[in-house]
């Protein structure tokens, strides 16, 4: 028997992304790649982005880890494709708010499938799993901005 708290964590949508991740694989024409690891649990992803004209033209990842980390990055890649860089950064910030228990963020339609991860905020030790992909995203955005500077 699953407890209600547990059911809120392991939603079908999460398990579905975990089993059939979106945008998984190498991106041959990537412009930036970030390797992010969580040393305490071994979760690992390589986020690959093709950035064109201030937009994320394409996004993929390769990696392995728990259902939360892998589902989160899968949902994220689906959502950031086609977005402007500042929009992608705003999404990452909004997601962090949701991980810190912000209920308005958990209802924000712009978050798409990511809303299924709202239950993670009740499991503080698993929040870092959900953030792995977004940490990589923000790192990639920072790197891109740095590279573009004169």
């Amino acid at each position: 028997m699953e407890t209600p708290k547990l059911s809120s964590l392991y939603q079908q949508l999460i398990l579905e992304h975990y089993r059939s991740p979106r945008n998984k694989g190498d991106l041959p024409d990537k412009t930036v790649e970030i390797h992010m690891r969580n040393p305490s649990c071994g979760d690992e992803i390589r986020l690959q982005l093709r950035i064109e004209d201030g937009h994320i033209a394409d996004a993929t990842f390769v990696g392995s880890g728990c259902s939360i980390s892998q589902a989160s990055v899968s949902m994220m890649t689906a959502l950031i494709k086609g977005r402007a860089l500042d929009e992608a950064d705003a999404l990452a910030e909004r997601f962090k708010q949701m991980m810190h228990g912000d209920e308005a963020a958990a209802k924000d339609r712009s978050m798409g499938d990511l809303r299924a991860l709202a239950g993670v905020s009740k499991f503080p030790v698993r929040v870092k799993c959900a953030l792995l992909g977004f940490d990589a995203l923000q790192e990639a955005l920072k790197k891109t901005a740095g590279g573009a500077a004169p």
Partner: peptide
């Protein structure tokens, strides 16, 4: 199977069972 050890540990914790998951 494809249940990651951290997921196993979270689920067991919700049942009051403390195990270790990791390397």
């Amino acid at each position: 199977g494809d249940a990651h050890p951290h997921d196993i540990s979270t689920i067991l914790d919700s049942e009051g069972i403390a195990i270790r998951a990791g390397h």
